[in-house]
């Protein structure tokens, strides 16, 4: 008896595909702007083939069976590519669930005994639901990969080390300074110190929204590491709010050279390197 329903489905593959396509095309949210109907049909047929070919008494109750590996692979491929193409998770979900409708409709046409029909429908329904979950999982995974890649990119571009003068580096920090960010800042800064042979680094925190004791600790760490390399580190861009919180929290920054602005930090750096910035004489004369 059981075998029968599977045979029915396998026999009526063509009809199921037609039904499924009809369901999909009837769906209001069909994104023919993202994928044309021809591609959709090819994709759907491939999936249906894989599903029906591997459907048997043993596997119908177990979506995680290794025989369904091709099905899950195809589904994973579909949801990842759809995530990239800009489909919403609902649209991808509807795609899989509309197959269920087609399968159940076909069973209904063929099986007359309501008890058997119910039992079989339930099994198919469960199976497709599990595949639906697989799509969601891979869909989210696909998104997560995008997010992770962007996080890496942000971390990479958000910590530029600038050579402002021979021997002076500046590092503007924009955004929150957490421990993983501090790691990147430290690594980039120390590497650049070695490469450029700089002896002064200016860490500008104008773009850091808030300084709490943890952020302060990260700053102190960065300064200490810079000193171990044999360079001095100046922290600039201390806004009044930051000064207030630092003192209220009882954070000790007295071992660190701090300046209100990047300009004054640069002036300090010049002094430390015994450099002097003067106006051109000629210019002075003309003005006199």
């Amino acid at each position: 008896m059981k075998n029968e329903s599977i045979k029915i489905l396998q026999k009526r593959k063509k009809a199921i595909l037609e039904l499924w396509m009809k369901n999909q095309l009837a769906e209001e949210g069909l994104r023919d702007d993202l994928m044309n109907n021809e591609d959709l049909r090819v994709q759907s047929e491939e999936l249906l083939d894989a599903l029906l070919n591997n459907l048997s008494d043993d596997t119908v109750g177990d979506a995680e069976s290794s025989q369904f590996d091709t099905v899950t692979d195809i589904l994973a491929g579909i949801s990842v590519s759809r995530a990239r193409q800009g489909f919403s998770p609902r649209e991808t979900g509807v795609y899989v669930f509309s197959l269920k409708d087609a399968l159940l409709e076909t069973l209904q046409q063929e099986i007359k005994d309501p008890v058997i029909l119910y039992a079989q429908s339930l099994k198919i329904s469960k199976l497709i639901d599990s595949f639906g979950i697989v799509t969601f999982e891979t869909f989210i995974k696909g998104r997560e990969e995008v997010i992770l890649r962007q996080t890496d990119e942000i971390a990479e571009i958000s910590t530029p080390v600038i050579r402002v003068w021979d021997g002076i580096l500046a590092l503007p920090i924009i955004g929150t300074l957490d421990s993983s960010r501090t790691q990147i800042v430290m690594e980039n800064l120390l590497q650049e110190i070695v490469e450029s042979g700089s002896s002064i680094a200016i860490l500008d925190i104008s773009g850091v929204p808030a300084v709490d004791s943890l952020v302060a600790q990260h700053l102190i760490k960065t300064v200490s590491a810079t000193r171990l390399m044999g360079a001095e580190c100046i922290i600039s861009g201390i806004r009044p709010e930051i000064a207030q919180t630092v003192v209220h929290l009882g954070i000790d920054l007295s071992q660190i050279i701090t300046k209100a602005s990047l300009a004054s930090a640069l002036r300090t750096a010049y002094t430390m390197l015994q450099l002097e910035v003067v106006k051109k004489r000629r210019f002075e004369k003309e003005n006199a």
Binding site: L190, L228, M229
Partner: peptide, 12 residues
């Protein structure tokens, strides 16, 4: 003199 960056970060 000449401490490597990775060593400095680790020491801290």
């Amino acid at each position: 003199v000449g401490m490597q960056p990775a060593v400095a970060i680790t020491l801290i």
